[in-house]
Design a protein around this nucleic acid. Structure first.
Lengths: 206, 206
DNA sequence: CCATACCAAGCAAGCGCTTGGTTTGTAAAT
DNA sequence: ATTTACAAACCAAGCGCTTGCTTGGTATGG
């Protein structure tokens, strides 16, 4: 993990559930199952069995099944926004900031929180329209981090393409790694993958 | 459409269903619904209502609901392999072949067959393991078209990154356009999008 | 003493799919 | 030209099962 301190801080603020708590363990298992089988194919009985309780007991922690999906998404996006912010703040040039963002997103997708990130991307439609709107607001904060860096690169002439389009392309390319990238396979590390991504974007030297 | 003749030929060979036939119309509506609501959320009653028959009558055309999903995927991949092959064959340099592939895939995703293409990408998990293996074989043919061109570019020195990785990144980036790209919005055409994609890949001039 | 966390049982609704019978299109037989 | 034959396409009804969720009651810890 990159920043265990950030996770601890968010747990303390009650933004993210403690993985040791009943709620935290359930969300973790839910993310795993939702990614593995999809939200619809995962039954409340599956979820309950994964944490060793009866299916009815779930509804003391969450009012509906959809609320579980929403909680997975909200907590994931909050955690990752904090991680991205830290990644950006640690760098001093826009080029390095972009690299840090790419690297951090690859780590989110293919690391510990990968299951939850995949849920965020691939189970979007299963959220009610109301919940979608709610999560969308959080995602805008997340996306602004990217756009600020990309627009700055554009302004300095390092980037030719449209920042908005580039970010969308990156979203697709990076998210998709979850379907094929396995650490250690083919000798490709996350750093290597980051390098390939940056190389593909062909920033101009100032 | 780029090549109406190709579609006609495939219909004549019974590789793809005539959109005018009962089966063809059902598959078209199925693709629309599967994309809109997801496979699991789409009921056989939804499918039947979309073509104006009773739900039970569906099972005179397909043995199971999953067979419908599989048919959508198989026909889509067959049609698109033919379209891609034609796109490649029409060009005379590897750089132009790559551009033609990017352009053709963007057209598949965002054009007439876009709904079916989106199903192919986002409903993969809903296929049984057996069906997955079957469709995977067809997809390998499709992917070989890309890899041949990319490997040729690599050998000539025009491409620095790993062809396999580049193709995976492109798959993600191009597929993802289905979630945000709307023709005419922001003045961005499919050609413009193709240009941005090619620019992002930064091929070296020989 | 009481709130929190849980269980055992089950309900109403919706699901994929089956069944038995009717309509429809087509083409040979009269 | 009309009848007969027959398969394909479809309908009306519903079966058996699974689903998300509810209910009433019981442990447990502070």
């Amino acid at each position: 993990m990159s920043h265990p301190g950030i996770l601890q801080a968010l747990i303390a603020e009650n933004v993210v559930s403690d993985p040791a708590s009943a709620r935290g363990r359930l969300l973790k298992e839910a993310a795993r199952l939702f990614r593995e089988k999809g939200y619809e194919r995962t039954t409340v009985r599956d979820l309950a069995a994964a944490v060793g309780i009866q299916s009815g007991s779930l509804f003391h922690h969450f009012r509906t099944k959809e609320e579980i999906l929403k909680a997975v998404m909200v907590e994931t996006i909050c955690l990752n926004t904090a991680l991205m912010q830290a990644a950006v703040d640690a760098e001093h040039s826009d080029r390095d900031r972009l690299r840090a963002l790419v690297r951090a997103e690859l780590e989110s997708i293919n690391g510990q929180t990968g299951e939850a990130m995949a849920v965020l991307v691939f189970e979007w439609r299963s959220l009610s329209v109301d919940s979608q709107a709610e999560v969308l607001k959080l995602r805008d904060i997340y996306e602004k981090l990217w756009l600020d860096v990309l627009e700055s690169l554009k302004q300095s002439g390092a980037l030719e393409a449209d920042p908005f389009v580039v970010r969308r392309m990156l979203t697709g390319a990076l998210s998709w790694t979850v379907t094929w990238y396995k650490p250690g396979r083919g000798g490709l590390t996350l750093d290597g993958l980051t390098d390939e991504t940056m190389a593909m974007m062909a920033l101009k030297r100032p």
